[in-house]
Design a protein around this nucleic acid. Structure first.
Lengths: 209, 209
DNA sequence: TGTACATCAGTGAACGCGCGTTCACTGATGTAC
DNA sequence: TGTACATCAGTGAACGCGCGTTCACTGATGTAC
């Protein structure tokens, strides 16, 4: 269904532009998390790919479209990481594994690779409609992918549990990152790990699985 | 201990400048929450007070000092609101009152008057040292003022409980504000109210009132 | 009571800078013949 | 195999704009005499 029918005339390899597009979205996803959506401009972003700013508009109609694409990318990345953390442990420990991974010092210290919620959700309420739409869909998809590890009466309930858990963990991570004092930051994470892993037990544990 | 000794030569009333200072901090606290710290500039802020931008530097050395002052103001305001919500109800219901107030649609819809955490904590980790210091102190003072309503073995434990509760509620409020869909937003708040008011019971209830 | 002067909160032009966006262009490539 | 041409990802000058900050100034006031 791609436009593969008129592949003719290209400067670089067949899918060079697609690769540039991908690199751009990934770099944006990193930089937005590190500096905030307003904290990094098109020119700086493009120069970090070895390109100049004018070329940006061959890939996106405007900055908001890039923000939307980066938002989808960030949710997708984070969901994959959470699944990876959960898949490493046996049934019954999966929620604890997710909580311990999410609320780890490693996750705190790698903002550019982590969940977007602690870094960017506060700014999302100030974004234009198109961005918020992409964000809301991304968040729902995120909760849906985590739901399989949660306790709950049905799929919808499990998704709500996942959303509640991630909202809470995002709040604690946000505080752990914003605070001045490293010891306080560690304490915030430690207390949150304890609280959330006991409050949300694994689906299988609860079911006796 | 004020500089009241050389009160001479003044255009307006005796404490006119102090009043302007106060108005400026309050307006900044509103606008920062609504638009983000980078979303409102000195010129716009001053013009909202009927003043011009140049006068700003008679009140603050730079924008960061205003951010610090506004941060203290926001924590102070929020703490007072939480105490007011708690004082309205009898012993045993105070944590529930705080949770229900914090996670209300009213609080969600009045960003400019609400707790700064859902609106600004994400940006705080990107602020310069002086701002983060004021923020960290403000947060600790906030937790200390709420601690009297919390369960816990000692004062430190109760402060930690308050911080954990507010981190979690801030995360849920942040999601409720960022999401596109009003029904989803209401659901996020409803589920969070249920979860946090049952997870954190009042000090007096736990102690047997 | 009347005049000269000092005070200082606030004014507004100017600064260098970075932003998002537009657009005429370049030049390496694949294709047609 | 060799030449002319079409393609198009990326270039870079230019746009209008808003930012934080500086600084010489203004003008209403209180004080001194």
């Amino acid at each position: 269904m791609y436009d593969v029918h008129h592949i003719n005339a290209m400067r670089y390899s067949r899918d060079h532009k697609k690769q540039t597009h991908t690199r751009l979205v990934k770099k944006a996803a990193e930089q937005f998390r590190r500096r905030g959506v307003q904290g990094i401009g098109i020119a700086k972003l493009m120069s970090q790919l070895g390109l100049t700013h004018g070329g940006f508009y061959a890939h996106f109609r405007n900055k908001d479209e890039l923000i939307s694409a980066a938002t989808r990318q960030m949710f997708e990345e984070a969901a994959a990481r959470m699944e990876a953390a959960a898949e490493k442990v046996p049934e019954g420990g999966k929620v604890a594994a997710i909580v311990n991974y999410y609320l780890s010092a490693g996750h705190r210290d790698s903002v550019t690779q982590g969940c977007m919620l602690p870094a960017l959700a506060g700014e999302m309420s100030r974004q234009p409609g198109a961005v918020r739409k992409a964000y809301t869909q991304g968040l729902s998809a995120y909760a849906a992918r985590i739901s399989k590890y949660m306790r709950g009466a049905g799929e919808e309930d499990r998704r709500n549990q996942a959303r509640l858990l991630f909202a809470g963990m995002a709040g604690s991570m946000m505080l752990a990152r914003s605070v001045d004092d490293p010891a306080m930051s560690d304490e915030i994470l430690r207390q949150a790990r304890e609280f959330y892993s006991s409050a949300f037990q694994s689906r299988e544990t609860a079911a006796g699985g």
